[in-house]
Design a protein around this nucleic acid. Structure first.
Length: 660
DNA sequence: ACAAATACTATTTTT
DNA sequence: TAGTATTTGT
């Protein structure tokens, strides 16, 4: 046990002296660099944490130590990218110390923005009852506006609604103009620029009029709030003693400015790995982590370089991949693990043989006693694994594929949510539109007519449709209006409302998805279960946008919980995870790296980091496979080259194999 | 005006 | 693959 005398501020700002008895032996449980980071208090720190160097462990120990030292947990703000990461760190620090750690102010940038804005919305001219649009909602708004503005001209293709939202969002997240984004990322839509501008203006106006914020707005308004020197803003800043940001290499410029705005006292610790920055495509700025010491001039840089995950062979290999990077914080990961096999690079004659090889090798590994749970197949893009999935099915190997459609984004769940949203807010035009179009015989035109009637008050759900005489509410729509009326008027628990909605929706659902209703039916059951946890409809609905109770259907694991599953995953989804044996498949130039990256140096550098992330997931075995021939739609079968990141690897770093 | 049939397009993911 | 936009048919 250590005894330390230190000076500190208590909450009222007075300096007090006190002896601290630590119950945790930080110095011996961490290595020197980890300890230096974990015991840091005031000041700015940049922790460069290489893959597998115990980054989360270090953060968790720092949280515990700050609290043991006597700082108020609520004065520590921990910002992460995913809810999962925030949850994990809180849980682990609570386990390490005690439940005081649950009180740390932590969460994603977006959830922090949401809470702050609702609290201080008034000073920004926002109503605190704003609704958050998720990406799908934003797309629906754009779609509605596009139809209203009559921007679709026949014969010429206009960007898809999702592309439009991507353009708008990228502009916000990178700080560039719409024009620049279109020019750089979507030059083929250059001619439509005027229309895109117009739509963007309409989108912003619509959000403003209807008290809606999309994900990007949350960050924009938070930053605006922090930058104004109002009393509430100052109060917020004064309440925060320490700011911590995880995965700093994946922050965008807005988030960097928010970090700057929150850390008024310069007590800020950001943690990340420049070598693992792989989200530039959604606006993350690799430059942020490189420029952090400029943002906070007295920054101390601490590097974690001891890797606890992989064999020295794998580390030598991954170090080589990253050595070639143009811009980086110099570091050399080392491992004290016992030596193992060299990574293997396997050339297969074609795609089918590549899949067969992986299947066989997985079966071998299982024979050797390695659980399927400890094996992963990683790929650049999710369609690379199609053939493999077929082969796995043939061989009866159970697997999960990570990175699929998310639960709340599935059409049938969105449909059900739309009913509930109307019950809560009858003016929710987007949800009305969605629901009206579900009905037979109602297309965009009729729906629009009904919407206008609703807006002008010609039809109202305040009145019992039984007694109203409105020719717009035909026999067909009568049940719908009766349902909405009941939901809106009667006091019910969310679960009861959901039940009524599902009862009404079921025939429509069966008709729409007659061929694959089974899986979707399970989603609906799941949703019904979720609603039972809620007492109020409004919290249910706002939680769905910002903190959905589950991420995906597979997370529920209603399959046999005991069954071992092989993991198939995109590299992006595999970040932060590790397996005993890892396969990286389809490492073909033009696919990985993607041919789209060829024009831009930055993009190519990101592809390299992606390879680095993939390879550093492996603890003991690393296999990289590629087919030598690929079927191409235009030219038939063509000869392919291995990924440029592995073709220069020398035999001392990896063993090459040729499949016959 | 709507529905059904067809053509097209898309990396990567989180909030 | 699958969701979406466009064309064609009723």
């Amino acid at each position: 046990m250590q005894k330390i005398t230190l000076k500190r501020f208590n909450n009222s700002g007075n300096i007090i002296k006190r002896n601290v008895h630590y119950t945790i032996d930080y110095e011996n449980l961490l290595n020197a660099a980890q300890f230096e980071a974990a015991s840091a208090e005031d000041g700015s720190y940049l922790i460069i944490a290489g893959a597998g160097t115990g980054k989360t462990r270090t953060l968790v120990y720092r949280l515990a130590r700050l609290i043991e030292t006597g700082y108020d947990p609520q004065s520590i703000l921990l910002l992460t990218f995913t809810r999962k990461a925030a949850r994990e760190m809180m849980n682990r620090s609570s386990l390490l110390l005690d439940e005081r750690c649950e009180k740390i102010s932590g969460g994603t940038f977006h959830s922090f923005a949401n809470l702050t804005l609702r609290k201080y919305a008034k000073s920004l001219g926002l109503s605190s009852g704003f609704t958050i649009l998720d990406q799908g909602d934003s797309e629906d708004v754009v779609n509605l506006l596009r139809n209203q503005m009559k921007l679709v001209t026949t014969g010429k293709r206009f960007p898809l609604k999702q592309t439009l939202i991507k353009i708008f969002s990228l502009a916000v997240n990178t700080g560039k103009t719409i024009g620049e984004i279109v020019e750089q990322e979507y030059p083929h839509f250059r001619d439509d620029l005027d229309k895109i501008f117009e739509l963007h203006k309409g989108y912003i106006a619509y959000k403003y009029q209807n008290n809606l914020l999309d994900y990007d707005d949350l960050l924009i308004f938070l930053l605006r709030f922090l930058n104004e020197d109002s009393l509430p803003a100052r109060k917020l800043r004064e309440g925060i003693r320490f700011v911590m940001v995880d995965e700093y290499q994946d922050t965008n410029h807005l988030q960097a400015e928010i970090t700057r705005g929150l850390a008024g006292n310069n007590n800020v610790m950001v943690v990340g790995d420049d070598a693992q920055s792989i989200y530039a495509f959604r606006g993350a700025s690799f430059q942020n982590i490189m420029d952090f010491p400029k943002l906070f001039p007295d920054t101390k840089i601490i590097k974690l370089e001891e890797n606890y995950r992989s064999t020295p062979e794998i580390l030598n290999f991954t170090n080589r991949i990253y050595q070639a990077a143009i811009q980086k914080y110099d570091k050399e990961l080392f491992s004290r693990r016992e030596t193992g096999e060299l990574p293997a690079i396997i050339a297969a004659p074609n795609v089918e043989m590549q899949a067969k090889f992986i299947v066989e090798r997985v079966l071998d590994l299982r024979e050797e006693g390695i659980s399927l749970e400890d094996i992963a197949i990683l790929f650049r893009s999710s369609y690379f694994s199609f053939e493999l999935e077929i082969e796995l099915q043939k061989a009866n190997i159970p697997f999960v594929k990570v990175g699929g459609m998310r639960f709340l984004e599935t059409a049938h769940i969105k449909d059900i949510l739309a009913f509930l949203r109307i019950a809560l807010n009858p003016k929710d035009v987007i949800s009305w539109y969605r629901i009206l179009l579900l009905h037979e015989g109602i297309g965009p035109k009729t729906a629009q007519k009904i919407l206008t009637a609703l807006e002008s008050g010609q039809i109202s759900i305040e009145a019992d449709p039984e007694r109203s005489e409105n020719n717009l509410v035909t026999e067909k729509l009568y049940p719908l209006f009766k349902l909405i009326y009941t939901l809106h008027k009667k006091k019910m628990r969310p679960s009861e409302m959901a039940e009524l909605v599902i009862e009404y929706y079921y025939p429509i659902f069966m008709d729409k998805y007659y061929d694959d209703y089974k899986k979707r039916k399970k989603d609906i059951d799941t949703f019904q279960n979720i609603t039972q946890r809620y007492e109020r409809l409004d919290t249910l609905i706002s939680d769905m946008a910002i903190e959905p109770p589950i991420d995906s259907v597979s997370e529920l694991g209603e399959e046999d919980k005991n069954e071992e599953l092989l993991t198939l995953s995109t590299i992006h989804s595999a970040k932060g995870l590790e397996w005993h044996s890892v396969f990286i498949m389809h490492a073909v130039d033009g696919f990985f790296p993607s041919s789209r990256a060829a024009e831009s140096l930055d993009a190519m550098e990101e592809e390299r980091r992606l390879m680095y992330v993939a390879a550093t997931r492996a603890k003991k075995n690393l296999f990289i496979t590629y087919p030598m021939n690929i079927y191409d739609r235009e030219s038939g079968t063509t000869l392919s080259k291995p990924s440029r990141f592995i073709s220069t690897i020398t035999p001392d770093l990896a063993a090459g194999f040729l499949l016959e």
